[in-house]
Amino acid sequence: MTKLESLETRHGKQPLETRHGKQSLETRQNKQPLLQVERLKTYYPIRSGVFSNGSGRIKAVDDVSLTMYEGETVGLVGESGCGKSTIGRSIMRLENPESGRIIFDNEDITRYSQRQLKPVRTRMQMIFQDPYASLNPKIRIYDTLAEPLIVHKLARRSEVQREVDSLLNLVGLPRSSGSRYPHEFSGGQRQRIGIARAILFRPKLIVCDEPVSALDVSIQAQILNLLQDLQDELKLTYLFISHGIGAVKQISTTIAVMYLGQIVELAQTEELFRNPKHPYTRLLLNAHPQPDPTLRMHKKMIIHGDMPSPADPPAGCRFHTRCPYAQERCRKEEPRMTAGRHAVACHYPLA
């Protein structure tokens, strides 16, 4: 029996309600962090011409700190262009940070070379937003999954077929899928293949970069349920990136809210929905339809204007140009993130 087959026969999954609150607290008690991001900055040069050396920089991620513990799911939510995906790509070292530190599994990988990163990447994987673009259209699914097993010597050649079949079964695809090409699958099926590829190494951390945003709502629910089941079976840790607050609520134990390259609020999922303290978080929650009429409704906020350019962020609080509660202090002084389980970067947090 292979390792993956043995995982399929396990029982005793945790109930869904433990995936929030209680589980998040338990995973943080008396444990070392799996991932620590310290004051991370990732900038991109702005080039005005082919031969230009650059006329400015896009501050995609600007002084972000984040801690994750094994077994939890941290949701990263915010508008398009706020820097969510750049954080994920920087953690995976697909982008080179300007400054800061990325400590994964007690290793500072911030300045690792590609050769040094090779063994690390078997312990951290990524699920991409567009599953079709992340799959080679000329290679069968069997070869997509079999090649890493052979290259990293995770299975003998005589065992590869059985391992691939087990992977496909884990993500809800038939064995016959291995002989087909990416264009022969639907979007949801292709994302299942992307998930199979991500769990192939049995990693500790998976960065999920908007894995359901391109899918129909009904398919989104299936993929989210699959991710939760795999987390229970394989003891995975997720950084779940999305601009949809509903998907983040379903799967996350902790939520970090981003705005213009910075995290502005961080709290456990239930606490964040019950008592959002940052005006931007309140805006996101108001935009999310609430089907239960008995739940408390927050006072509606009116937001004017668009998000400023990350090439020239405003002074002081970056949200003050759109915040109805902004005061003179907000325009001059940048707020610091408070300490504690419910952290917020706001001079005048909401009650």
Results as ranks from 00 to 15, higher is better:
L226Q: 02
F240H: 13
G261L: 12
R197P: 02
R192D: 07
Q222F: 03
P182Y: 07
P279C: 08
R202I: 07
R296I: 11
G261T: 10
H278G: 12
E270I: 10
G305D: 10
L227R: 00
F201S: 12
K249H: 14
N275K: 14
T281F: 07
R282F: 07
L295D: 13
M258T: 06
A267Q: 01
G261K: 08
G188D: 07
Y259L: 13
Q231H: 13
I302P: 01
H288T: 15
K300L: 15
A221D: 02
A198T: 08
K249C: 09
Q222M: 03
L200R: 09
I195V: 11
Y280Q: 04
L239S: 06
P211K: 01
G261M: 09
F273I: 08
A221R: 05
M297Y: 11
Q228P: 03
L215H: 02
H288C: 15
S218T: 11
Y238L: 09
Q231N: 12
T237P: 12
T237R: 12
L260W: 11
G305V: 05
E271W: 06
L205F: 08
R274T: 12
A221P: 03
S242M: 07
E271Y: 02
I303M: 01
K204W: 12
R282W: 06
R190N: 13
L205C: 09
S179C: 06
I193C: 05
P211V: 02
Q250H: 13
S252W: 08
Q222S: 04
T281W: 03
S218E: 05
F201T: 14
D216N: 00
Y238N: 12
I195G: 03
L266F: 13
D232Y: 10
S186Q: 01
G305L: 06
L226E: 00
L295Y: 13
L200F: 09
I223F: 03
R282S: 10
I195A: 05
